[in-house]
Amino acid sequence: MKEKSQILGNHAETMSEEQLVKFSSTVSPSTTKSYEEMGKELKDRIVKLLGRSLAIREVDAGSCNGCEIEIAALTNSIYDVERFGIHFVSSPRHADLLLVTGPASRNMEAALRRTYDATPGPKIVIAVGACALDGGIFGDTYATTAGIDKVVPVDVYIPGCPPRPELLVQGLLLAVNRLKR
């Protein structure tokens, strides 16, 4: 559990600000796989399990937009996740998976819940970034809910502030692998 929690899986401890600052630079994927290898594996899984593509809806539940920058980077021509069969769709009604960022601000709580409800099952939810895990630096206050899983059920947690694109793909792989079960 401990090793897992460092990269993916339940975010056990609350990170201090010091850690938060370091996090983006010191976290390194636990696997020895390269980005391309993970991408290939992801593609195989997606083809096998879903037929063609994995449709993702990104939901910003009050992030600082740092996580959005990295998620958007997945679609640039260097990371180019589209070639692994990953497609960002514009409606939750077309989505298999929700990528959710932010500490779930209270003003986004209802919208997040509605987005979740509008996503057809079976669905996966990934919480992206330190904020989404437990509120991160924004913590548990009047204005936040202290983590996406306080609002909707979460399957996979990707820490980092923000997580690097490689880590996002690693998280997607873990999530897709879960789908089988």
């Binding site: 910003d60 986004m108 206050t141 009047y142 204005a143 936040t144």
Partner: peptide, 11 residues
């Protein structure tokens, strides 16, 4: 706007 209000100033 203000959907992303996170209480920064109070924090």
């Amino acid at each position: 706007l203000f959907y992303a209000h996170k209480g920064v100033e109070k924090l």
